[in-house]
Amino acid sequence: MFQALPYEGNRSEQFSSVLEQLKSLIHDEPSSIANLANASALLNSFLPDINWVGFYLYDGQELVLGPFQGLPACIRIPLNRGVCGTAASERRTLVVDDVHEFPGHIACDAASNSEIVIPLIKNEQLLGVLDIDSPLKGRFDHDEQQFLEQFARIISEKL
């Protein structure tokens, strides 16, 4: 059974705790959907000041909505479109301090002002993206980006 506890220590120690929780949650579970659902719930309980966290999965042509926490979202995102489609096609993390200034931004939730998208890649193959939105501008910093990239690597290896 998972119990939400306050995270103690500095940010690095808190990030390490979350990564260990993730590994424990997905260790013996073969279902990708279950693992992605728990991963999004874990991040939703840990990260302050976010309004959406979840996954879009690549079906070979476009990104399709997967497990998430937040308001209902866009179901399909073409590659090269919006922050998610751009991060997926370029296979690199995108941190956008103000989504309203991002060309082609797809507004699924009008409350979102900043976003981070991390591609999920395994054996050089695109699997999807981890997408996190915040109502705050400039919400995501470099340390959090590195933590979330580690989180995404752990998930990608399990998919």
Rank of each mutant, 00 (worst) to 15 (best):
A88D: 00
L126K: 01
C108L: 11
V129A: 00
A73P: 02
H27F: 06
A41E: 06
R92H: 04
T86W: 04
E90V: 01
D131G: 11
P48E: 07
N113W: 01
V64P: 01
L43P: 10
D131W: 00
N123Q: 14
N38M: 12
I116T: 12
I77P: 00
S89D: 10
L42M: 07
D28N: 14
T93F: 02
S31I: 08
A37P: 00
G82R: 12
V95R: 14
D49Q: 15
A41P: 00
L120I: 12
V95K: 11
V99H: 12
S32M: 08
S134Q: 12
Y56I: 15
W52N: 08
R91I: 09
N80D: 15
Q61W: 02
E90W: 07
D131E: 09
D49K: 10
G82T: 10
V83T: 13
D97S: 14
S112V: 14
T93C: 09
A88K: 08
Y58A: 08
A107H: 04
A110R: 12
I118Q: 02
D97K: 11
C108V: 05
P72Q: 10
S112R: 09
L71N: 08
D109R: 11
E29R: 12
S89M: 10
V95Y: 04
C84N: 01
E124T: 13
P119L: 06
V96M: 06
N35T: 03
S45C: 08
H100Y: 15
I132T: 08
C108N: 05
E90K: 15
A39C: 04
P103A: 14
I50M: 10
G60D: 09
P103S: 13
S40M: 05
